[in-house]
Simulated scan of single mutants.
Amino acid sequence: MLKRLLLGLTAVSIVALSGCALSPQQLSPTPKLNGSLTAVGQGQPVVVKVVDGRSSPVLGTRGGLYADTSNIVVPAENVLPKLQAQSEAAVRLLGFTPTQGGGNVPQLTVVLAETKYQSPKESNYVTSADISATLRAELRSPSGRQYTGRYGASLNQRFGMAPNVETNTKLVSDVLSDALTRMFRDPTIGEMLQSR
């Protein structure tokens, strides 16, 4: 009887511990422009380029007892093409025409500057996370005028249980969407894209 009880407790302990060990997650977020933009251009061409300026594709960890095994990763190839498509769509909504080249047109470079995912270090369980993203706009007009702007977004999310890939993908998508929307709602972007 005692032997069965010990075996049962051991099994429960193993299940409990395995619940604290979280696997790495590779996310493929889908940023989307929120709401409408005011058109200020008349179809002028603009070169639009999106680049990864992060020091690492690792956003952070989900925390928990074995935080070292629970990295959250967003590879450049999982997000840059989507940011490129949304940036070109935003430029069209502003009244301009995205183009691949041309030396005598304004150039907009959208830099994915930072993505972060932080969980409380003091807890053995994942109860919340701070997620943030920062984009940088670098504009250059043919006349040599330049503008750089930083646009960030963040959120704090509480969890009843450790978040899965779908939940974290949505959260990272949300902060990227907010940062992207803030960028293209900056009136300076439209003004600079009009300058020659």
Rank of each mutant, 00 (worst) to 15 (best):
Q25S: 10
Q194T: 09
L6S: 10
S18V: 05
G103A: 14
D52K: 04
L7W: 06
A39M: 05
L83D: 07
N104P: 00
T148R: 11
Q25K: 12
E88P: 07
E122L: 13
P187Y: 07
A137Y: 00
T99P: 05
V47D: 00
A90S: 10
S119W: 02
E77F: 09
Q157I: 01
R182K: 15
K82G: 05
P29M: 07
L171W: 09
L22D: 00
L22V: 00
S154W: 03
Q86E: 15
K121Q: 14
Q86A: 14
R4H: 12
A137V: 00
D174F: 03
L80D: 01
P29S: 09
V47I: 13
R54Q: 02
V46T: 07
L2T: 10
I189G: 09
S18E: 11
R150H: 11
V46L: 01
A76D: 05
L180G: 11
N156R: 14
L108V: 01
P31D: 02
T30V: 14
L9Y: 03
P24M: 06
V110R: 04
I189P: 06
A90D: 07
M183K: 06
A179F: 05
G60Q: 02
A85W: 03
T109Q: 14
R145Y: 12
L9W: 11
K82I: 05
S132I: 06
S132H: 05
G103I: 04
V172C: 11
L94F: 11
I131W: 07
D68I: 08
L93F: 01
V126L: 11
K49T: 14
V175T: 12
N124V: 14
A162Q: 02
Y151V: 04
R62V: 02
T188V: 15
N104K: 12
L93S: 15
T115M: 15
V110Q: 07
V126G: 03
T167H: 03
R150N: 15
P120S: 13
S173F: 06
A21P: 02
K32D: 02
V51M: 09
Q157E: 13
T167W: 00
Q157A: 13
L80V: 15
T97M: 08
S173I: 10
L93Y: 03
A89D: 14
G43T: 01
L155K: 13
A39L: 08
Q42W: 00
R158C: 00
L93E: 15
D186S: 09
V111S: 01
Q26K: 11
V48N: 08
G160D: 13
S13I: 08
Y117G: 06
L93G: 07
N34V: 15
D178F: 00
V175A: 11
Q100D: 15
T61R: 00
P24W: 09
A16Y: 08
D52T: 08
Q44S: 12
Y147S: 14
Q42A: 13
M161H: 12
P187W: 07
A67T: 11
P106V: 14
D68T: 04
G63M: 02
N34K: 13
E191R: 13
L180W: 02
Y151M: 05
R145T: 13
V91P: 07
E138S: 14
G43Y: 04
V105Y: 10
L6F: 13
S23W: 06
Y151T: 05
L17D: 04
L6R: 11
F159C: 09
Q86V: 01
S36V: 11
P163C: 04
L33Q: 06
E114A: 15
L193G: 03
A137F: 03
N164Q: 09
Q107Y: 01
G8M: 13
V175G: 06
S132R: 05
G103C: 01
E138T: 06
